[in-house]
Design a protein around this nucleic acid. Structure first.
Length: 277
DNA sequence: TTGTGTTTTATTGCCTCC
DNA sequence: GGAGGCAATAAAACACAA
């Protein structure tokens, strides 16, 4: 900073604005001690402010400096030492200032990038949310439709099942009487034997709606044979209530080989069992 | 003019790399 | 261990409404 020269013009200035020392001595003669202390405090504040102004203050870079820095940043957003020194010389800045400017510029760039990424992700998220809502609605509609169909099906089955059971039972009994076994034109191995806890299990599948799952007890001293009929509709409705049906006719199966002639090599596919589930 | 929010410049502390 | 980068933050400069 240029210092004012002590020349004739300085004398003239001193005449208009007397030096501080002179003013102080004059004031001390005029003001009270308390008021003087107050003035001294204010003066001290002014002095500190002047010192502050004298020190290096934060300055904004000029338009041209920023323009040049921006241009360099576009080329390469990181500085190598050589470029830093060269830029500082060209722009009349300290190397540290150039480095700091690049540092801050990178931070701003990163923030902008994050904002852009956020916008893209947000739009993707919104689109997905829309799709999800649509699918959810579709799922609800389909579920409702399925429930409706199931209820309808259950209703129809329960109406026909009691009648069907009676008819099929008598038909079955007649077949046993006539042929000794249940005729089955379905070649899907409708009759299967199993040993379970000493009981012979008969799994009989007919082409009718009735399926019968029966346990024929060989230890039964009477000639009564117990079958456990299982109606498909009761499975579907999760209302399976096993009920033994007493077959009054004489058992055609001897205790020794009650079902051998019914045995098959191939296990049933059980497809009929799961149909409708 | 002033209070307030935003932007820019600079500092600090920590971390990584050579 | 020094140089350089980054995140967080301070502080000055600036913009703007009331």
């Amino acid at each position: 900073m240029k210092q004012p020269s002590s020349s004739g013009s300085q004398d003239a200035l001193n005449f208009i604005i007397p030096p501080k020392e002179e003013m102080n001595s004059k004031r001390k003669q005029i003001y009270s001690r308390e008021f003087q202390a107050l003035l001294d405090d204010l003066e001290e504040e002014d002095r500190l402010e002047e010192v502050d102004q004298a020190t290096e203050k934060k300055r904004r870079l000029s338009f041209n400096q920023v323009k040049a820095l921006e241009k360099n940043f576009e080329l390469e957003n990181k500085l190598d030492p050589e470029r830093k020194v060269r830029l500082a010389e060209e722009l009349g800045l300290q190397t540290r200032q150039v480095a700091i400017w690049f540092q801050n510029r990178r931070a701003r760039w990163k923030t902008k990038q994050l904002e852009k990424e956020y916008v893209v992700l947000k739009s993707k998220y919104d689109a997905l949310e829309l799709d999800y809502d649509k699918l959810e609605q579709e799922k609800q509609d389909l579920t409702a439709e399925l429930m409706e169909l199931k209820a309808k099906y259950k209703e129809e089955k329960s109406e026909s099942s009691s009648q069907s059971v009676k008819e099929d039972s008598s038909k079955f009994s007649q077949q046993i009487k006539d042929h000794g076994f249940c005729e089955n034109d379905d070649d899907s191995n409708g009759i299967v034997k199993e040993e379970r806890n000493g009981n012979a299990q008969l799994l009989i599948s007919s082409s009718s709606s009735l399926q019968m799952n029966g346990y024929c007890s060989s230890s039964d001293s009477s000639n009564h044979h117990w079958f456990l009929p299982l109606d498909t509709s009761t499975i579907l409705g999760n209302m399976y209530q096993p009920q033994l049906v007493k077959v009054e006719e004489q058992c055609v199966f001897t205790p020794e080989e009650p079902y051998n002639f019914l045995s098959v090599d191939q296990a049933p596919t059980l497809q009929w069992y799961f149909t409708g589930l």
